[in-house]
């Protein structure tokens, strides 16, 4: 019986890889998810999730702008996200960003995206009618082999780049003033990092779409930070959780054809975060209980 199950599972997995679209999806998805996890860890650590949000708007406008002018969507996508990422880094976004300015500027950029969308759909008769849906919500099953290989290579390069600057970046993220005093080029690091976030946004757009990329960046990283305070472990965990969300999501979408992969990936990522939250709550409760059981009902001095 067990043997039969294993056999069935084995042939199921063989089936899985028989489809080129699944191979492409898993190849690109793994690299994209790992990169998103690594980048996301620092994004959450540096409280820059809202820059990711801003980049998602830019990704939409950039990709559709390229399509409207008859260029490969990826050109506009990466050009826009990297430029704006570097720009955000140069302007400086320490602390709480100014919600109003960000909201106003990026709503307008989204409006520009709508303009490009309408130019694209009205001018090109050969245009793909679902292009905007693909840009907004991703189409990981629609990647061609060439696109998947390119996405995987960029993903691997992105992971490498993040790991190269990880040590100084970690220092600069946790204590900027001390890092600067120790000669770490804090400002340059910040700009380079937001450029990398731009690359990551462009990558993630191809998998889960411009609107959902924030989830792929924030959820696994947020979960990793809930689970551990140790930076290197957390960094690795974020990448592993992101890849897990990607694989589970893709498999669920493969099994149930009605579910779009972007949804199942996001749902898995959200579930992972919820799980991490529950684990950390239980741990805190246990720690509190342990303290409570200690030297019986000691009265603590008033902190004030």
């Amino acid at each position: 019986m067990t043997a039969a199950l294993v056999l069935a599972a084995g042939s199921g997995i063989a089936d899985l890889f028989a489809h080129p679209f699944m191979r492409n999806a898993l190849l690109a998805g793994t690299a994209i998810a790992a990169a998103s996890g690594l980048v996301g860890y620092f994004v959450v650590l540096r409280s820059q999730v809202f820059s990711g949000d801003a980049l998602s708007h830019v990704a939409f406008a950039g990709a559709l702008g390229a399509l409207a002018f008859g260029v490969d969507a990826r050109v506009g996508l990466f050009a826009a996200t990297i430029l704006v990422g570097l720009g955000l880094g140069a302007v400086g976004t320490r602390g709480r960003p100014d919600d109003v300015v960000i909201g106003t500027v990026f709503t307008w950029i989204l409006g520009l995206g709508v303009l490009f969308l309408s130019i694209y759909t009205t001018s090109s008769s050969t245009g793909n009618g679902a292009a905007n849906v693909n840009v907004l919500f991703g189409s990981i099953f629609g990647l061609s082999t060439g696109e998947a290989v390119a996405a995987a290579l960029i993903g691997v390069a992105l992971c490498a780049a993040v790991l190269v600057i990880a040590r100084p970046l970690l220092f600069a993220s946790i204590d900027e003033a001390v890092a600067a005093a120790r000669g770490v080029p804090v400002r340059a690091l910040g700009i380079v990092f937001l450029g990398l976030v731009g690359v990551c946004a462009g990558e993630a757009t191809q998998a889960v779409g411009a609107l959902l990329l924030v989830g792929l960046i924030a959820a696994p990283a947020g979960a990793a930070q809930r689970l551990t305070d140790r930076p290197w472990l957390g960094l690795g965990l974020a990448a592993v959780l992101a890849v897990a969300a990607m694989w589970i999501g893709v498999l669920v979408a493969y099994v149930d054809g009605d579910v779009p992969p972007s949804f199942s990936i996001m749902a898995t990522a959200g579930a992972i975060y919820l799980g991490a939250y529950a684990v950390s709550r239980v741990r805190t409760a246990r720690a509190v209980a342990r303290v409570g059981r200690g030297p019986a009902h000691r009265t603590w001095p008033d902190p004030a």
């Binding site: 959450v44 999730v49 809202f50 990711g52 949000d53 919500f137 609107l211 959902l212 990329l213 924030v214 989830g215 792929l216 960046i217 924030a218 959820a219 990283a221 947020g222 930070q225 972007s262 949804f263 990936i265 996001m266 749902a267 990522a269 959200g270 975060y273």
Partner: peptide, 12 residues
């Protein structure tokens, strides 16, 4: 991070 996750999930 929570807000980002919730927004992405809602859109999904």
């Amino acid at each position: 991070a929570v807000i980002g996750t919730i927004q992405a999930f809602a859109l999904a």
